[in-house]
């Protein structure tokens, strides 16, 4: 294995090549099998209808060569792009908000400095694509503009689609439809979902909820990045992409499934914590190691470990948590 992964990220110095190789040789068999199944499914016609079969296929992972296309189709981004030809380019040619441009520029060199494709010296340098996508999006969705965290998401979309316009429409699918308002100025959707996770932990892993409460650890402190960055820079790249496969198809409840699986699976470990800093450290540790690297088994776990999680439950919790937050001002 090379110092740089297939997506351009430099592997950390303490990267465990031996255990990654052991995992990857097994995963390669899965990837090959999935690739064959997917080519049959897509067979020439680049269209997919939502069905139980497709859902099952997506949970088992979209092969990288089809990932951009499938994300585009199942998220509705493809339809929006086709219905609005030239819209993306018009946004880039239109009048710009100077303050927005400045905020985006500030983060250019700070988005994936560990990825060779985002370096100034890279050819093509993906910073340009990233800048364009964020500028276009900020002018398209003026209520959101630019919010830190979107740079990472757009960056991943560009790495996968290798196409600015598609990245723009996928970003719109995520921010405009799939996620509740995580990035709007009040970030009410984010605050709500952090509380919803707290409630779900109370129901499904009560000992951890009790520990958090006893030490006064707010959920926002340990999980805000999970929501805002959709696990980028938290979990391994391959695992993040597998999560996003399901996110585009099944929606935002996948985030809760992942979070609950991480917490439930590591319950005993988290409960060893005896103070506030300990708890924070444990929450950092649980996003590392073979459990999360082995993305295929991890993705199986997220659909079994947390137990049933209906959209009705989540909607109800979202409603009560939102009202509570609003009443607190």
């Amino acid at each position: 294995f090379c110092r740089v992964d297939p997506y351009g990220f430099e592997r950390p110095e303490d990267f465990d090549y031996a255990s990654y190789e052991a995992f990857f040789s097994r995963y390669l068999v899965v990837l090959t099998r999935r690739a064959i199944k997917w080519s049959k499914l897509l067979k020439g016609n680049n269209s997919i209808q939502k069905s139980l079969k497709v859902k099952r296929y997506i949970r088992k992972g979209i092969p990288n060569e089809h990932r951009a296309l499938v994300w585009m189709i199942v998220s509705g981004a493809q339809t929006n792009m086709e219905q609005n030809p030239g819209y993306y380019h018009r946004l880039l040619e239109g009048e710009k908000n100077a303050k927005l441009l400045e905020a985006i520029k500030t983060d250019m060199n700070r988005t994936f400095p560990d990825n060779v494709k985002f370096r100034k010296t890279a050819d093509p340098c993906l910073q340009h694509a990233l800048y364009n996508v964020l500028v276009a999006y900020g002018h398209h969705n003026k209520a959101v503009g630019y919010c830190q965290g979107m740079n990472f998401i757009a960056g991943y979309l560009i790495l996968i689609t290798k196409n600015e316009e598609e990245s723009f429409w996928l970003l719109d699918a995520l921010i405009g439809r799939i996620l509740p308002d995580y990035y709007s100025p009040a970030m009410l959707g984010l605050k709500t979902d952090q509380e919803v996770l707290g409630e779900l932990v109370k129901m499904k892993v009560p000992a951890v909820a009790e520990l958090m409460e006893r030490h006064g650890v707010m959920w926002t402190l340990v999980v805000s990045r999970w929501f805002i960055c959709l696990f980028i820079d938290i979990l391994p790249v391959e695992t993040v992409l597998r999560i996003w496969d399901c996110l585009f198809y099944e929606g935002s409840k996948i985030i809760f499934r992942v979070a609950l699986t991480l917490i439930k699976q590591n319950q005993a470990f988290i409960l060893e914590a005896t103070n506030f800093p300990d708890i924070c450290e444990k929450f950092k540790q649980i996003t590392k190691g073979t459990f999360v690297t082995e993305c295929h088994s991890f993705m199986q776990k997220i659909f079994t470990d947390p137990g049933s999680l209906s959209m009705a439950t989540i909607n109800k919790l979202r409603e009560t948590c939102r009202e509570k937050l609003l009443s607190q001002g």
């Binding site: 983060d107 988005t111 994936f112 740079n151 990472f152 402190l221 990045r225 820079d233």
Partner: peptide, 27 residues
């Protein structure tokens, strides 16, 4: 403000090191 070096100050103080840090999202 963004990019004034808050995380870098913390990192320098706690780890006595300096490196390119990603923007802090949340806390």
């Amino acid at each position: 403000s963004m990019s004034v070096g808050k995380s870098s100050l913390a990192y320098r103080y706690v780890r006595n090191d300096f490196r390119e840090l990603l923007p802090t999202v949340g806390c």
